[in-house]
Simulated assay, not measured.
Amino acid sequence: MKYSKIRLAFTATTLLAGCVSIALAQSNMSYADGAAAVPDSWLLVKKGNPWWYTTKASPTPVALRQRTPTAAEQQVIERARSLVANRPAKAFALLDGDVVVYSETKAPADMESVFHGFSVGKTVTAMAVGQAICLGKLKLDTKASEVMPELAGKALGSATVHDLLRMASGSAEPNPDSTIFTPEQFKEWGRGNLNLVDLITEERVAKAQRGVFSNYKPGELFSYKGTDPILLGLMVSRATGIVWNQWIQETILNPMGAAHSGLYVQDRQQNGLSDGGLRMRLEDWMRFAVWVKRSSKEQSCFGDFVRKAITTQIPNGSSPSTRKMGKLFGGYGYLTWTDNEIAHNTSWAVGWGGQRISWHRDSDRIVIAFSNIENWMPDLYEVARDWNALLSRKTMNAI
Rank of each mutant, 00 (worst) to 15 (best):
F10M: 07
T13S: 10
T14I: 01
L15M: 14
G34P: 14
A35Y: 09
A37S: 15
V45A: 12
G48L: 01
P88L: 11
K90N: 13
A93M: 13
P108D: 12
A126D: 03
A126E: 08
Q131F: 03
L140Q: 09
A144C: 08
S145K: 14
A155P: 12
T160S: 14
T160H: 09
V161R: 03
L164V: 14
L165N: 11
R166D: 12
S169T: 11
S169M: 03
I180E: 10
F186P: 05
F186V: 15
E188L: 13
G192M: 01
Q209I: 06
L221P: 00
Y224N: 03
K225Y: 10
M235A: 02
V236R: 12
V236L: 06
E250K: 15
P255E: 07
P255L: 01
H260K: 15
G262D: 13
L273K: 01
G277A: 04
R279G: 05
Q299I: 06
A309W: 05
T312R: 13
S319P: 04
S321N: 05
G331Q: 09
I342Q: 08
V350I: 03
D362R: 09
S363M: 12
R365I: 07
A369Y: 04
I373D: 08
D379A: 08
L391F: 03
K394T: 15
